[in-house]
Structures are given as C-alpha cells and as structure tokens.
Design a protein around this nucleic acid. Structure first.
Lengths: 359, 359
DNA sequence: TGTGTGACTCGAATCGATTCGATCGAATCG
DNA sequence: CGATTCGATCGAATCGATTCGAGTCACACA
C-alpha cells in the first residue's frame, strides 16, 4: 500500500518497542515477554512486514547461507552426466539440512566459465569446485583471497583447499593391468577435457604436459605407467557423442594398428566408444575391449555390463556437503578419499588372435 | 596476515583517498583520475583486498544478483527429467548474461519442499516457480509480501505473478481427439503429481477436485472433455518407473475392461507406460496406444516415435530468464504462452478389433 | 529494609560498502 | 578578465538489520 516496504524499525515503532527488542522477537534469540512478542508480530502483520531483510541480516552476521558450486560446463551437459547429477543431489541433501542454498555457477555456450566479475559480486559462504578444479584456476586465488573456504572435488590439490577425491590413479591402474593381463598391447585412451577450452582431438605433447585437472592427469598416467606411451584423444565435454567421435578417430586406423582396447576416462565416454565400435562393424568385446570410469547406471548400454571403476558419487556429494558444514562451523575439514571398486563387466575380453599369430 | 580482512576503508586510507573515491575506483562509476585509481588498486593489492564485499554492496544497492528457482522435487528426480534440465539450461544461459546466479531450492528426501525459514533467510532478487507452482503454495504469499517478483512456469495463474506456460488444454485436447478419431473408447490417464505429497495410485474424487497444479488440471480436463470420466492413476514423481507402475495397475484389469489407450501426462511417464505394456505382453500400438506430453528426446524409447505434444522447453527456460530480466529492470513482463506442436508418432493406432465385433 | 537475582527492554555501535550533494581548482568561453 | 563548466574528490547519510553492555523493575531472600 505505502510506497516503501516497511522495515523492522517501523514495526518496532508501531509496536511501541525498540528495534532491538523487535529483532529479538523475530529471531527468537534472547528473552522476550510473550505479550511483547505478540505485539510485535501483530504490528508486523498490520504493516505487511514479511520478516527481516535477508541482506541486512547477512551483512551483520557475515554469512549469507549460500554455498556456490562451480560447474565447468554448460548445465545442459553437466546434467546429462549421472555423476554430476548424483553429486549435486547428495550435496543438495546435506546443504538443505544446513539451511543453506545451492547456487549453481556454470559455464555457458559462449564462455568457458563464469566471469570473475559475477563470482566477485555474488555473496557466498563457501564454494565447491565440482569437476572443474583446474590446478591453476584463477578463481581459486580469488576465493582464497576473500577468505571463502573451498572444497575441491577431484580438484586441485593445494594447501589451502580441502580436497575430496577417489584413488583415480589406483583405479585406472587396476583397469589397465586387467587389460594387460588379458593380453592387450595396443591400447588407446579417450580422455576427459584436460582444460575447458573446447579442444577436441589427438592430444599434443604440449597439452599433455599441461593437463589442468588432477583426475584426468592421474587416470592418464596410470595407463601410461602400464602400457607406456599410448595414443590419446581428448574430448571437450563429457558426453556420449564426444566419446563416439573420439573413438571413431582411433578406430579409423588400419586393422594392424588399430587398438584392441580403449580406455575411456568416464563411463559416458565409454558408451560413446562402444557405439563407435559398433558403427565400424566391430564387436565388443571380441574386437575391441572397452573400459570406463565412474560406475554409472545408464539405459544406453543395452545388454553390456561395462568394465569400470565404481565410485560412490552421490555419497561424494554428501561428503562435500559435510566438509562445507565443517568449514561453516569454523573448523578445517580433513581431506577425504572415498573408496572405489573395480567392476569387471562384459566389455573386456582377450584380444582377437590376429596380430599375435597368423591364422 | 593480519587478523582481520581489510575493508574498503582501510584500502582508501592506505591510498590516501576517501572511501567514496576508493569505491568509485573499484566500481568504475563516476570519474576517477587514472593515477588515483592505480594508487587505490595498488593499495588493495598490498593489503590483500579482494574487492568490495558482495553483501555490503548488495545491501546498499538492494539487489543480490541471485535468482532462486524452486524445484518441487528432489534434484535427483528433477535432473532425470529432460524437460526440467532443458528448462534450467535455458534459464542459466540467460541469467548468466544478466550476471545473476541461479540458486536451486529443492525438496529433499524427507520434506516435500524447502522450509519457509530457509526461503526467508535467503537473499534473492526474483524467484521462479519451476514445475511446482501449486495455486495455493504458501510460499507464494511470502514472496509477494516481500515484494520479490515471481515468474511462474506452468502456473499458478494469479494476478500478482507473471506466468509462462503452453496451451496444456489445447495440446491434450488434440491428443485426446486423435485417439477418439482412431476409434478408442476405453481411455485411461496416468497423471503427474497433483500435489507434492507422495501420493501414488488411483485418484480419488477428493484429490481430483483439489489438483494443485494448473497444467495437470488442464491436461486432465481436456481428456475428460473428450471422453468423459476416465480412470485416473496418479504418480508421485515424474519418472519412468512411476509411469510403469501406474500403468501396470491399469493394465491388470480383465481384457474387456482394459483401456485401449493410455494418456500419460508426460513423455517420461509414457515411456513407463510402454514398458508396462510390454511387460504384460501387450504390443504397442496394436494392443495399447500411448501418448505423452513434452516432446523429449530419450534413448529409452527404442524404435518408437512417441505420439505427443512438443513444447519448447529450453526456450521456456530462456523466456523465463528474460521475464526475470524484465522484472529486474523494473518492468512487469507480460504473461507468455509458448507455441506447441502435436506430433503423431508410432505409438498410436486404431484399437484392436476385439470388443467392437466378435471375431 | 537492603541486596541480590533474573527477566525484560533499550541505546548505540556495527557490519562494509554506495551514493548524493558539496567543494575546489583548473580549464574553457565570451 | 570574470563567469561557467567540468573533472576529481570528499563528507556524511544510508541500506536494514543484529548484538552487546547497560539499565530498569519486580520479586525473593536474609
């Protein structure tokens, strides 16, 4: 009705009490006579006052109740990734029990990430780097400089951030050994993005030396520690189509040079690899073994059971939430490494005899 | 180093200028000599000042740069719904161009929605009801009372909120007519949740009279306006499994009473219906015609092309974002109704002859 | 009757910036 | 050369609450 929205002071005046008392009446902290409280609430109702302004309250308390989550990719892609979705779900579950909101900050179609400006303007109590914590992300310094606690999921290992990850190296190593034991010698890898610049295709030495994401680096290193240098094709985004395209590149080689097994750095990419194989008339696992990483459930796999490393990604989100809670409580959470499990499925088998002995 | 984080005032003092000037140096508004600006920035660097506190700035400017999006369901379910995901993607795209952040507020495993308390404590410039705008949602009044602009996607239709929807009634009507023209007489419907209370099963008269969501109501009404009263089974969540379970209930009837066509209120539910049909040994569309709503692309449909109503859900998200932008610019956006298109696929056909003429 | 205790309320400082109007010197114009 | 204008800077008010220490009052206890 009136031009201006009423303030707590106005309500207090109307109720005939001081602003401090009115504040106590709303927040419930401190002793307030029952009758006084009711008078205040009545005054608020009459004036159409909906409760203390969150902004003013946040400023005073130095806390906004907002936890930001950085998603590297466009939401559309991130949401197609069951790992990302599971992570967010676990996270949301815990945050909501903390009475904190989940603010999504994502890249978009044109930019590769959020503008530093937007990040600097947004109030947040803590930030989570979800699947996009490049070791040298400039935003990291910003947050640290601001004193905003950072939880890095699979993210940069640094002194000043709390890290939550799995044993990427060990998991990938186990898969690589599995392939080696089956007799594979010609291996290739399809990797997740090594940085968010949209690059697609064979990975140059230069890029290989500058892989920005720790998990990508570890998973790649494990394979190379078993097989030595292998052909690597990089994808710009963790979606099936990119895996398919990358694998098509690898499978276009003449049969004698064609890999007998492909290590995909994610299950989603692995699905793409399988599709590419089928597209080229190859049978999986007879002509091509495929392994992934993550352990997602997906309807895209038909009757296959993917050989992969299972990681508890929903729990990962929950743990990330709990680490944030620790920070908010003023403590510095310990780094966490969640357990993984290797699952041998039906997408791996010994390589076809061709090449080892002439038929 | 020092116990406290530096403030703008400290930086100003160090640079030998007034706080007002320092503020201008950072914000870029107003004229500041090049040399002065540099002096201020240098002082900031020396003190480790990361820029103005977003909370203080927000309080003064009365704007937080945060747009909240209410998701009724648990994120895990919402993210399995391509419509929800597409909507969020379009929304995020526009919001990020507005330099606003996307705050997700969702229900969780235990509660059916966010606590009013959390909502009241969170600073936000605008709010979007995405697929959860019950006509009588108490949160609505809260936002209105706070003066926070509301954009309601698919309802609720109220004077004081901006609505963005499609012609649910018209679309469903077209589908219903299509089925009628094919000769179907025994129809049943599987609906989306009529309210978020986890109810599953046949819809009682009482619930039917109290459908909280406008789109659900319209889609149901259209079917009944063509076929009269039909059996209705309600689902608690828009996921395939629920559609399957609901349809199983309907298909358990003896053949003579079994519906020859099922109208699912979403494509996801329709996929479930098809599965249930196949589970019961029925052929689609020969023994059972199925229609959906939304027009999603999904790998779950095998070779079927679903008969459905296509709505532009990514664009829907973008438009919602633009409506928010209008509000933020101080204008009241007009309500928007996006165009839809009926797509006749391969999941509908005339009913089997049985029942009309004895073979 | 003096004093301690506890419940309740208030005043004033504070959170950290932004912004409006005023000031002041230098440059421009007639 | 005086009047205007413009650019740069500053002071002070303001955004809307929370919080802490202090003050008041009634009641109980010795």
């Amino acid at each position: 009705m009136s031009g201006q929205r009423p303030t707590l002071a106005a309500v207090a005046a109307r109720a005939g009490v001081s602003p401090s008392t009115a504040s106590l009446a709303f927040s419930g902290a401190g002793p307030v006579a029952q009758e006084t409280r009711e008078r205040v609430l009545a005054a608020a109702r009459e004036l159409g006052y909906a409760g203390p302004d969150p902004l003013a309250r946040s400023l005073r308390q130095g806390r906004s109740g907002i936890v930001a989550t950085l998603i590297g990719e466009r939401l559309l892609y991130a949401f197609r990734d069951p790992v990302a979705v599971g992570l967010l779900d676990g996270l949301a579950e815990v945050l909501s029990s903390l009475d904190s909101g989940l603010l999504l900050i994502s890249g978009d179609a044109t930019r590769t990430g959020p503008t530093p400006d937007q990040v600097a303007r947004t109030p947040m109590d803590a930030v989570i780097f979800a699947m996009c914590g490049r070791d040298d992300d400039p935003l990291l310094d910003h947050f640290i400089g601001r004193g905003i606690p950072v939880v890095a999921v699979d993210g940069p290992h640094r002194e000043d951030v709390a890290v939550l990850d799995v044993d990427d190296y060990g998991g990938s190593m186990a898969l690589a050994r599995h392939l080696a034991e089956l007799g594979h010698r010609r291996i290739a890898t399809v990797t997740l993005p090594s940085r968010l610049d949209g690059h697609r295709g064979p990975m140059s030495d230069e890029r290989r030396a500058q892989v920005g994401f720790a998990d990508v680096r570890q998973r790649l290193k494990a394979v190379e520690d078993v097989f030595g240098r292998v052909p690597v094709v990089e994808t710009p985004t963790n979606i099936i189509e990119e895996g398919q395209q990358a694998a098509a590149l690898l499978l276009a080689a003449p049969p004698a040079e064609r890999p007998t097994a492909i290590v995909a750095q994610s299950d989603l990419l692995a699905v793409g690899v399988i599709r590419a194989a089928l597209d080229s008339g190859l049978r999986v696992p007879d002509d091509l073994s495929v392994v992934g990483f993550d352990g997602i459930e997906t309807p895209w796999l038909d009757h296959y059971v993917l050989t992969t490393v299972e990681q508890p990604y929903v729990e990962k989100g929950r743990v990330a939430g709990r680490m944030v809670a620790e920070f908010l409580a003023g403590r510095r959470p310990d780094d966490v490494r969640l357990p993984i499990e290797v699952r041998i499925g039906t997408t791996t088998a010994p390589p076809a005899a061709a090449g080892t002995l002439a038929p």
